[in-house]
Protein backbone atom coordinates (compact mmCIF):
# COMPACT_ATOMS: atom_id res chain seq x y z
CA UNK A 1 0.00 0.00 0.00
CA UNK A 2 2.57 2.51 1.13
CA UNK A 3 5.08 1.47 -1.48
CA UNK A 4 2.42 2.14 -4.13
CA UNK A 5 2.15 5.77 -3.06
CA UNK A 6 5.90 6.15 -2.96
CA UNK A 7 6.27 4.68 -6.40
CA UNK A 8 3.56 6.94 -7.79
CA UNK A 9 5.09 10.04 -6.25
CA UNK A 10 8.49 9.09 -7.59
CA UNK A 11 7.09 8.57 -11.05
CA UNK A 12 5.28 11.91 -11.03
CA UNK A 13 8.44 13.57 -9.79
CA UNK A 14 10.46 12.03 -12.58
CA UNK A 15 7.79 12.91 -15.13
CA UNK A 16 7.58 16.59 -14.23
CA UNK A 17 11.31 17.02 -13.90
CA UNK A 18 11.68 15.45 -17.32
CA UNK A 19 9.13 17.96 -18.62
CA UNK A 20 11.14 20.85 -17.28
CA UNK A 21 14.29 19.50 -18.91
CA UNK A 22 12.32 19.29 -22.14
CA UNK A 23 11.16 22.88 -21.62
CA UNK A 24 14.76 24.05 -21.45
CA UNK A 25 15.51 21.94 -24.51
CA UNK A 26 12.55 23.55 -26.29
CA UNK A 27 13.99 27.01 -25.73
CA UNK A 28 17.52 26.07 -26.72
CA UNK A 29 16.44 24.20 -29.85
CA UNK A 30 14.68 27.27 -31.25
CA UNK A 31 17.73 29.40 -30.55
CA UNK A 32 19.83 26.82 -32.38
CA UNK A 33 17.39 26.64 -35.32
CA UNK A 34 17.22 30.39 -35.73
CA UNK A 35 20.95 30.99 -35.48
CA UNK A 36 21.63 28.01 -37.74
CA UNK A 37 19.23 29.24 -40.41
CA UNK A 38 20.72 32.74 -40.20
CA UNK A 39 24.28 31.55 -40.70
CA UNK A 40 23.36 29.06 -43.38
CA UNK A 41 21.35 31.53 -45.45
CA UNK A 42 23.22 34.68 -44.55
CA UNK A 43 26.74 33.55 -45.42
CA UNK A 44 25.76 32.97 -49.02
CA UNK A 45 25.51 36.69 -49.67
CA UNK A 46 28.15 37.72 -47.17
CA UNK A 47 30.88 39.41 -49.20
CA UNK A 48 32.79 42.69 -49.09
CA UNK A 49 30.40 44.19 -51.61
CA UNK A 50 27.68 43.98 -48.99
CA UNK A 51 29.38 46.94 -47.33
CA UNK A 52 30.41 48.73 -50.52
CA UNK A 53 27.45 48.64 -52.90
CA UNK A 54 23.99 50.15 -52.74
CA UNK A 55 20.72 48.25 -52.49
CA UNK A 56 20.01 47.02 -56.01
CA UNK A 57 16.84 46.95 -58.07
CA UNK A 58 15.54 43.39 -58.41
CA UNK A 59 17.61 41.19 -60.67
CA UNK A 60 20.85 43.11 -60.21
CA UNK A 61 23.82 42.70 -57.92
CA UNK A 62 24.35 44.98 -55.02
CA UNK A 63 24.95 45.35 -51.33
CA UNK A 64 23.47 47.03 -48.32
CA UNK A 65 25.88 49.96 -47.89
CA UNK A 66 23.23 52.68 -47.79
CA UNK A 67 21.10 50.72 -45.34
CA UNK A 68 24.07 50.07 -43.04
CA UNK A 69 24.98 53.76 -43.13
CA UNK A 70 21.38 54.72 -42.36
CA UNK A 71 21.14 52.35 -39.42
CA UNK A 72 24.46 53.55 -38.01
CA UNK A 73 23.57 57.23 -38.46
CA UNK A 74 20.11 57.05 -36.94
CA UNK A 75 21.24 54.82 -34.07
CA UNK A 76 24.12 57.18 -33.32
CA UNK A 77 21.87 60.23 -33.22
CA UNK A 78 19.39 58.36 -31.01
CA UNK A 79 22.06 57.20 -28.57
CA UNK A 80 23.72 60.63 -28.41
CA UNK A 81 20.37 62.28 -27.73
CA UNK A 82 18.87 59.62 -25.49
CA UNK A 83 21.78 58.67 -23.24
CA UNK A 84 22.21 61.98 -21.34
CA UNK A 85 18.47 62.28 -20.84
CA UNK A 86 18.19 58.73 -19.58
CA UNK A 87 21.29 59.13 -17.42
CA UNK A 88 19.96 62.27 -15.71
CA UNK A 89 16.47 60.88 -15.20
CA UNK A 90 17.90 57.64 -13.79
CA UNK A 91 20.13 59.70 -11.51
CA UNK A 92 17.13 61.61 -10.24
CA UNK A 93 15.29 58.38 -9.45
CA UNK A 94 18.24 56.81 -7.61
CA UNK A 95 19.88 59.81 -5.93
CA UNK A 96 17.35 62.59 -5.36
CA UNK A 97 13.85 61.23 -5.67
CA UNK A 98 14.37 57.70 -4.42
CA UNK A 99 11.31 57.44 -2.16
CA UNK A 100 9.24 60.40 -3.34
CA UNK A 101 5.85 60.06 -4.93
CA UNK A 102 7.09 61.74 -8.10
CA UNK A 103 9.88 59.18 -8.46
CA UNK A 104 7.40 56.36 -8.00
CA UNK A 105 5.28 57.82 -10.76
CA UNK A 106 8.23 58.40 -13.11
CA UNK A 107 9.42 54.85 -12.49
CA UNK A 108 5.98 53.50 -13.32
CA UNK A 109 5.69 55.52 -16.52
CA UNK A 110 9.24 54.65 -17.54
CA UNK A 111 8.73 50.93 -17.09
CA UNK A 112 5.54 51.13 -19.10
CA UNK A 113 7.37 52.93 -21.91
CA UNK A 114 10.09 50.28 -21.70
CA UNK A 115 7.68 47.55 -22.75
CA UNK A 116 5.23 49.65 -24.74
CA UNK A 117 4.79 48.56 -28.37
CA UNK A 118 7.45 50.26 -30.47
CA UNK A 119 4.99 50.73 -33.30
CA UNK A 120 3.01 53.08 -31.07
CA UNK A 121 6.07 55.24 -30.41
CA UNK A 122 6.45 55.32 -34.18
CA UNK A 123 2.92 56.68 -34.52
CA UNK A 124 3.73 59.30 -31.88
CA UNK A 125 6.82 60.51 -33.76
CA UNK A 126 4.88 60.42 -37.02
CA UNK A 127 2.31 62.82 -35.58
CA UNK A 128 4.92 64.94 -33.84
CA UNK A 129 7.69 65.17 -36.44
CA UNK A 130 6.63 63.80 -39.82
CA UNK A 131 3.32 65.62 -39.98
CA UNK A 132 4.88 68.88 -38.76
CA UNK A 133 7.80 68.67 -41.19
CA UNK A 134 5.55 67.51 -43.98
CA UNK A 135 7.82 64.66 -45.08
CA UNK A 136 9.57 61.52 -43.85
CA UNK A 137 13.12 62.04 -42.64
CA UNK A 138 16.05 60.44 -40.86
CA UNK A 139 15.52 62.96 -38.05
CA UNK A 140 12.10 61.46 -37.44
CA UNK A 141 13.57 57.94 -37.54
CA UNK A 142 16.25 58.94 -35.03
CA UNK A 143 13.61 60.58 -32.82
CA UNK A 144 11.54 57.41 -32.70
CA UNK A 145 14.65 55.43 -31.75
CA UNK A 146 15.48 58.01 -29.06
CA UNK A 147 12.09 57.40 -27.50
CA UNK A 148 13.10 53.72 -27.24
CA UNK A 149 16.61 54.43 -25.92
CA UNK A 150 15.58 56.69 -23.02
CA UNK A 151 13.59 54.17 -20.91
CA UNK A 152 16.29 51.50 -21.32
CA UNK A 153 19.01 53.86 -20.08
CA UNK A 154 16.82 55.18 -17.25
CA UNK A 155 16.09 51.69 -15.98
CA UNK A 156 19.68 50.40 -16.02
CA UNK A 157 21.12 53.67 -14.67
CA UNK A 158 18.78 53.60 -11.69
CA UNK A 159 19.42 49.91 -11.02
CA UNK A 160 23.17 50.34 -11.22
CA UNK A 161 23.25 53.45 -9.02
CA UNK A 162 21.21 51.63 -6.39
CA UNK A 163 23.93 48.96 -6.25
CA UNK A 164 26.52 51.56 -5.17
CA UNK A 165 27.00 51.20 -1.41
CA UNK A 166 25.76 54.16 0.62
CA UNK A 167 29.04 54.18 2.54
CA UNK A 168 30.75 55.60 -0.55
CA UNK A 169 28.26 58.48 -0.78
CA UNK A 170 28.48 59.16 2.93
CA UNK A 171 32.28 59.14 2.88
CA UNK A 172 32.34 61.66 0.05
CA UNK A 173 29.71 63.83 1.72
CA UNK A 174 31.67 63.71 4.99
CA UNK A 175 34.65 65.15 3.15
CA UNK A 176 32.48 68.17 2.40
CA UNK A 177 31.70 67.46 -1.23
CA UNK A 178 28.41 68.94 -2.47
CA UNK A 179 25.87 66.30 -3.50
CA UNK A 180 26.27 66.97 -7.20
CA UNK A 181 30.02 66.34 -6.89
CA UNK A 182 29.35 63.19 -4.91
CA UNK A 183 27.14 61.92 -7.70
CA UNK A 184 29.42 62.86 -10.56
CA UNK A 185 32.78 61.99 -9.03
CA UNK A 186 31.83 59.03 -6.86
CA UNK A 187 28.51 57.33 -7.62
CA UNK A 188 28.67 57.62 -11.40
CA UNK A 189 32.23 56.34 -11.38
CA UNK A 190 31.39 53.42 -9.17
CA UNK A 191 28.48 52.49 -11.43
CA UNK A 192 30.25 53.25 -14.71
CA UNK A 193 30.43 49.66 -16.00
CA UNK A 194 26.73 49.20 -15.29
CA UNK A 195 25.74 52.42 -17.01
CA UNK A 196 27.78 51.49 -20.08
CA UNK A 197 25.92 48.17 -20.03
CA UNK A 198 22.66 50.06 -20.23
CA UNK A 199 23.80 52.04 -23.24
CA UNK A 200 25.00 48.87 -24.99
CA UNK A 201 21.65 47.20 -24.32
CA UNK A 202 19.89 50.26 -25.71
CA UNK A 203 22.00 50.09 -28.89
CA UNK A 204 21.23 46.38 -29.17
CA UNK A 205 17.55 47.12 -28.76
CA UNK A 206 17.34 49.81 -31.44
CA UNK A 207 19.60 48.23 -34.02
CA UNK A 208 16.94 45.66 -34.82
CA UNK A 209 14.00 48.00 -34.37
CA UNK A 210 11.88 48.10 -37.49
CA UNK A 211 8.30 49.05 -36.83
CA UNK A 212 8.75 52.73 -35.88
CA UNK A 213 11.17 53.33 -38.77
CA UNK A 214 8.65 52.25 -41.39
CA UNK A 215 6.68 55.45 -41.10
CA UNK A 216 9.29 57.86 -39.80
CA UNK A 217 12.50 57.34 -41.78
CA UNK A 218 10.68 55.38 -44.50
CA UNK A 219 13.34 53.93 -46.81
CA UNK A 220 15.72 55.10 -49.50
CA UNK A 221 17.22 53.20 -52.37
CA UNK A 222 20.19 55.50 -52.68
CA UNK A 223 23.18 56.64 -50.67
CA UNK A 224 21.98 59.52 -48.53
CA UNK A 225 23.66 61.32 -45.66
CA UNK A 226 21.02 64.04 -45.43
CA UNK A 227 19.14 63.62 -42.15
CA UNK A 228 16.37 65.77 -43.59
CA UNK A 229 15.54 63.21 -46.26
CA UNK A 230 14.13 59.69 -45.98
CA UNK A 231 16.86 57.24 -45.14
CA UNK A 232 17.32 53.50 -45.57
CA UNK A 233 17.93 51.30 -42.56
CA UNK A 234 18.88 47.66 -42.35
CA UNK A 235 15.64 46.45 -40.75
CA UNK A 236 13.43 48.40 -43.17
CA UNK A 237 15.38 47.05 -46.14
CA UNK A 238 15.14 43.51 -44.77
CA UNK A 239 11.38 43.93 -44.44
CA UNK A 240 11.01 45.25 -47.97
CA UNK A 241 13.32 42.64 -49.51
CA UNK A 242 11.98 39.65 -47.59
CA UNK A 243 8.39 40.47 -48.50
CA UNK A 244 9.29 40.77 -52.20
CA UNK A 245 9.11 37.83 -54.60
CA UNK A 246 12.73 38.18 -55.85
CA UNK A 247 15.30 35.54 -54.90
CA UNK A 248 18.31 37.87 -54.99
CA UNK A 249 16.52 40.32 -52.70
CA UNK A 250 15.84 37.43 -50.33
CA UNK A 251 19.57 36.62 -50.25
CA UNK A 252 20.39 40.21 -49.32
CA UNK A 253 17.67 40.19 -46.66
CA UNK A 254 19.28 37.12 -45.09
CA UNK A 255 22.71 38.73 -45.17
CA UNK A 256 21.27 41.84 -43.49
CA UNK A 257 19.53 39.69 -40.91
CA UNK A 258 22.79 37.92 -40.11
CA UNK A 259 24.55 41.28 -39.80
CA UNK A 260 21.97 42.67 -37.37
CA UNK A 261 21.82 39.52 -35.27
CA UNK A 262 25.61 39.29 -35.03
CA UNK A 263 25.73 42.93 -33.90
CA UNK A 264 22.93 42.57 -31.39
CA UNK A 265 24.17 39.32 -29.88
CA UNK A 266 27.75 40.61 -29.61
CA UNK A 267 26.50 43.74 -27.86
CA UNK A 268 24.33 41.82 -25.44
CA UNK A 269 27.10 39.39 -24.59
CA UNK A 270 29.57 42.24 -23.98
CA UNK A 271 26.92 43.96 -21.87
CA UNK A 272 26.47 40.82 -19.82
CA UNK A 273 30.19 40.44 -19.23
CA UNK A 274 30.43 44.06 -18.07
CA UNK A 275 27.45 43.79 -15.78
CA UNK A 276 28.46 43.70 -12.14
CA UNK A 277 27.31 40.62 -10.27
CA UNK A 278 24.31 41.35 -8.10
CA UNK A 279 25.22 41.77 -4.48
CA UNK A 280 23.11 40.24 -1.70
Amino acid sequence: MNTGIYARRKIWNGFFLLLSVLAAGFGLIWLGFILGALFYNGFEAFAPKLFLEMTPPPGENGGLANAILGSVMMSTIAVVAGTPLGLFAGTYLAEYGRYTRLAFFVRFVNDTLLSAPSIVTGLFVYELVVVKMGHFSAWAGAASLTVIVIPVVVRTTENMLLLVPNGLREAAAALGAPQSSVIRAVTWRAARAGIVTGVLLAIARISGETAPLLFTALNNQFWSTDPNAPMASLPAVIFQFAMSPYADWHRLAWAGALLITATVLTLSIIARLLQPKRSS
Binding site: I34, T210, A242, T261
Partner: peptide, 21 residues
Protein backbone atom coordinates in the same frame (compact mmCIF):
# COMPACT_ATOMS: atom_id res chain seq x y z
CA UNK B 1 22.29 33.37 -20.97
CA UNK B 2 21.36 31.32 -24.04
CA UNK B 3 17.69 31.45 -23.09
CA UNK B 4 17.92 35.19 -22.50
CA UNK B 5 19.50 35.63 -25.93
CA UNK B 6 16.13 34.59 -27.35
CA UNK B 7 14.84 37.91 -26.05
CA UNK B 8 17.76 39.74 -27.62
CA UNK B 9 17.15 38.52 -31.16
CA UNK B 10 15.33 41.33 -32.97
CA UNK B 11 11.70 40.88 -33.90
CA UNK B 12 12.39 41.13 -37.61
CA UNK B 13 14.76 38.15 -37.44
CA UNK B 14 11.96 36.01 -36.02
CA UNK B 15 9.83 37.33 -38.85
CA UNK B 16 12.15 36.42 -41.69
CA UNK B 17 12.94 33.06 -40.09
CA UNK B 18 9.27 32.36 -39.55
CA UNK B 19 8.36 33.24 -43.12
CA UNK B 20 11.13 31.40 -44.97
CA UNK B 21 12.04 28.52 -42.67
Amino acid sequence: IAIELLAGIPSIIYGIWGLFI
